[in-house]
C-alpha cells in the first residue's frame, strides 16, 4: 500500500511563506494532480515529497514510513523534471538503467527493466543514442522511462509536458495516461494547465497561495468549487460570480455571491418571468457553441449558448440560471452548502 500522507507542512524561503500549513492524503495507486498558478507552492510541495527541499515543520509519510527527513535516495520515489534532466553524457540505455545500477540490481534485471520501459515509451529503437541526438518529445520519453524503470513507490512529475509544443503535448498526455494507468503507481503530478489536470487526474488538489483550496474528484472540482478561487481558476471561461441583489426566490443565509458556470443558463429571446434581461457586449463563435460577454446592472459575465440562437452585440437576451447548478458563496469566498 503506497499512500502519501502530508500533515501540516509549512515552508518559507526568507520572508516568502510558500506553503502555509498544507495537509493532503493521497490514496494508494491514485493519480493526484497539484493544480495552481505559478508561485502557489505546488512545485515546492512536490519537491518536499521528493526530499529535494526540507519542510520547516510538518510530517511526510509514504506508506507507513515517515520520510520527513530522509534524503531523496531513501524515499523510493522517482521524479520527472520539466526540462527532462536526461544525462547528456550517457546513452538512453544508461540513462534508464541509472537508478537500477545505483541500487545494484543484477545485470539481467537491469536489461529487462530498461527494455520493458523503453518499449512502453516507444523509445526501444533509440537505446544507443545520446540525449543530444533526441528531440524534446523523445527526451521526455526517456525521462519517464527512467523514472518507471526503478519501480518506485511514488512517481513525481513536475510539469513534464510544458516544454513540448501543443500538438505533441496532447499526444503525450494521452500516452502518459495509458502508461500510468497500467503501471498503477501512486503518482503526484504538478501542472498549471487545468485541461491537463482534468484529463489526467483521479483527484485534483487546487492550490492557492500556499494552501490547498479543494482536494476532490475532477467532476466535483468542476461542479462544486469549494471556493470562489477554485471556480474562477477551473473552467474556460471560468465560473461567473454575480451579486444576487436582483435574485428572486431563496438566497441562502450569508450568501454574498452566486456562482454559475457559463453553460448553465436557460436562454430565451423573449422576456419571461424570472429571466434576467442582459445586454450582449461581444459575441464569439467558437464552432461548437458561441460565447457571449454580457452585462447586467453593471456586472459582467460570460454565457455559452447554442449556435442556433441568432443574436448580435447590443441585443438583449433573457437568461435564467438553472436552479440545480447555482452555487452560493459567502463573504470569505467559501461555498455554502
Amino acid at each position: 500500500m503506497t499512500t502519501i500522507s502530508i500533515e501540516n507542512v509549512k515552508k518559507s524561503f526568507g520572508d516568502a511563506h510558500i506553503l502555509k500549513s498544507v495537509s493532503l492524503d493521497i490514496k494508494h495507486q491514485e493519480f493526484t494532480v497539484l493544480l495552481g498558478p505559478s508561485g502557489c507552492g505546488k512545485s515546492t510541495l512536490l519537491r518536499i515529497i521528493a526530499g529535494l527541499e526540507t519542510q520547516d515543520t510538518g510530517v511526510i509519510k509514504i506508506g507507513d514510513r515517515t520520510v520527513s527527513h530522509l534524503p531523496p535516495k531513501e524515499r523510493n520515489v522517482a521524479m520527472v523534471f520539466q526540462n527532462y534532466a536526461v544525462f547528456p553524457h550517457m546513452t538512453v540505455f544508461e540513462n534508464i538503467a541509472f537508478g537500477l545500477r545505483m541500487k545494484k540490481a543484477p545485470e539481467q534485471k537491469i536489461k529487462e527493466n530498461v527494455e520493458r520501459t523503453a518499449t512502453l515509451m516507444h523509445i526501444d529503437h533509440l537505446l544507443h543514442r545520446y540525449s543530444g541526438q533526441l528531440s524534446g518529445g523523445q527526451r521526455q520519453r526517456v525521462a519517464v522511462a527512467r523514472a518507471l524503470a526503478v519501480e518506485p513507490d511514488v512517481l513525481l512529475m513536475d510539469e513534464p509536458l510544458s516544454n513540448l509544443d501543443a500538438l505533441l503535448r496532447l499526444q503525450m498526455r494521452a500516452e502518459l495516461k495509458a502508461v500510468l494507468e497500467a503501471s498503477k503507481t501512486t503518482t503526484v503530478y504538478v501542472t498549471h494547465d487545468q485541461v491537463e489536470a482534468m484529463s489526467l487526474a483521479d483527484r485534483i488538489a487546487v492550490m492557492n497561495a500556499g494552501r490547498i483550496d479543494q482536494y476532490d474528484l475532477p467532476d466535483e472540482i468542476y461542479n462544486n468549487p469549494a471556493t470562489e478561487y477554485v471556480g474562477s481558476f477551473i473552467g474556460n471561461p471560468p465560473m461567473n460570480f454575480i451579486s444576487p441583489t436582483f435574485q428572486r426566490g431563496d438566497i441562502p443565509e450569508g450568501a454574498t455571491q452566486l456562482g454559475i458556470r457559463p453553460e448553465d443558463f436557460d436562454v430565451s429571446t423573449e422576456a419571461r418571468e424570472d429571466y434576467w434581461p442582459i445586454t450582449i457586449l461581444t459575441r464569439e463563435r467558437l464552432g461548437s457553441h458561441q460565447q457571449l460577454s454580457a452585462e447586467l446592472n453593471g456586472q459582467l459575465f460570460r454565457v455559452n449558448i447554442a449556435n442556433e440562437i441568432d443574436v448580435s452585440s447590443g441585443n438583449t437576451l433573457y437568461l435564467k440560471p438553472k436552479d440545480d447548478k447555482k452555487r452560493w458563496y459567502s463573504e470569505s469566498g467559501k461555498i455554502i452548502l
Partner: peptide
C-alpha cells in the same frame, strides 16, 4: 537532483 532521486548521495 535527478541523480539524487535515482539513488545517489
Amino acid at each position: 537532483e535527478a541523480a539524487w532521486v535515482l539513488g545517489c548521495n
